[in-house]
Amino acid sequence: MPTAPTRRRQALVLALAVLGVASLGACTAGSGPDGSRPVSSAGPADPADRADLRRFYGQKLVWKPCGDHLCASLTVPMDYARPGDGRTFLLPVAKAATAVPGKRVGSVVLNPGGPGERGARLIKDGGADAMGPGVRERFDIVSFDPRGVGESRPALTCTPAGSSETAPGDDAASPPLVPRTAAERADALADARATADGCRKASGPLLAHVGTVDAARDLDVLRAALGEPRQE
């Protein structure tokens, strides 16, 4: 029998998928016939060269011991279209340093995926060991809590403050984890939409800045903060 946290994660994943589909049109506005985005010649090709993003790309991670690993915080703009408006996310970052410093080549960043997975916790729980001894000898293994997730500040919430209602997905009558019939798929979609509505009500404008494109841009800022070169 799936546990309540498992059901909550299923509901949140489905809800974020519903939200993603709803916003897809806005993300692809202005695309070419093959789905590609037009390339602007108005600004620098490397976002690190943009004056309003330099402070984010120029930051250095300050590592501190956290158990057997090292931890730091990464600051990223909440809205990459308006990075100078003062709103930011503070993302926790964790690192398992290379096992053989003399052989170090660089960093491998693990994207925790999900949505909703916590990368810093993954490192602290020994996730770097899954990379194998050959990789561990040559690379620092790094991961992070994506914006809105885990110990990110601010973090997304889908339960209104002070609400005594059961969180979506907690009810034993929630749709099965793997819907197999048309009725079960309809129930799962309805449950996801209800969760998405809860996220909108509880998180307000924050929800618009928690998405795949934003997380990808955060990864590039993390790459720069780790001192790793941009690959052309």
Rank of each mutant, 00 (worst) to 15 (best):
S164G: 13
F139A: 00
P175V: 04
T157K: 10
S152F: 06
G119E: 02
A155W: 06
D140N: 14
P168H: 12
R147V: 05
E137A: 13
P179C: 05
R180A: 14
A161P: 04
M131W: 03
S174N: 05
I123M: 07
A182K: 13
R153F: 11
K124T: 11
F144N: 03
R153T: 15
L156S: 00
S143Q: 11
G132C: 08
P175L: 07
A120V: 02
F144A: 00
P168A: 11
E165G: 12
A172K: 14
A120G: 04
A120E: 07
S163H: 11
V135A: 04
G127H: 03
G148E: 09
V178T: 14
L122N: 03
A155H: 13
A182F: 11
G169H: 03
E184M: 08
R180M: 05
E184Y: 07
R147L: 10
T181P: 01
P160Q: 08
V178Q: 10
A130G: 11
E165Q: 13
P175Q: 11
R138L: 08
D129Q: 14
G148V: 02
G127V: 05
P175C: 09
L177P: 00
S164A: 12
E184C: 06
E184F: 07
S164H: 11
C158I: 09
T157W: 04
P133W: 08
F144L: 15
R121W: 08
P133A: 13
E137N: 14
D125L: 07
G127E: 10
P154C: 14
P175M: 06
M131S: 02
A167E: 13
K124D: 01
A173Y: 05
D129F: 14
P146C: 10
P154V: 08
P179S: 12
K124N: 09
P168G: 08
P179L: 08
R118I: 03
G150H: 03
L177M: 12
T181R: 08
V149M: 10
G132E: 06
D125W: 12
A155Q: 09
P160L: 13
D140K: 03
T159C: 08
R136N: 14
G126Y: 12
R153S: 12
G150P: 03
D140F: 06
P179T: 06
P133T: 06
A120F: 02
T157D: 14
R118E: 12
T157Y: 04
R121F: 07
P154W: 11
A128Q: 01
G132T: 04
D145K: 08
R153Q: 15
P179K: 10
L156D: 04
D145Y: 09
A167T: 12
E165H: 03
F139I: 02
L122A: 10
A167Q: 09
A161W: 05
T181C: 07
S174D: 09
V135R: 04
V149D: 02
V149K: 02
R121C: 06
R118Y: 00
D171R: 10
E165V: 06
T159K: 06
I141D: 01
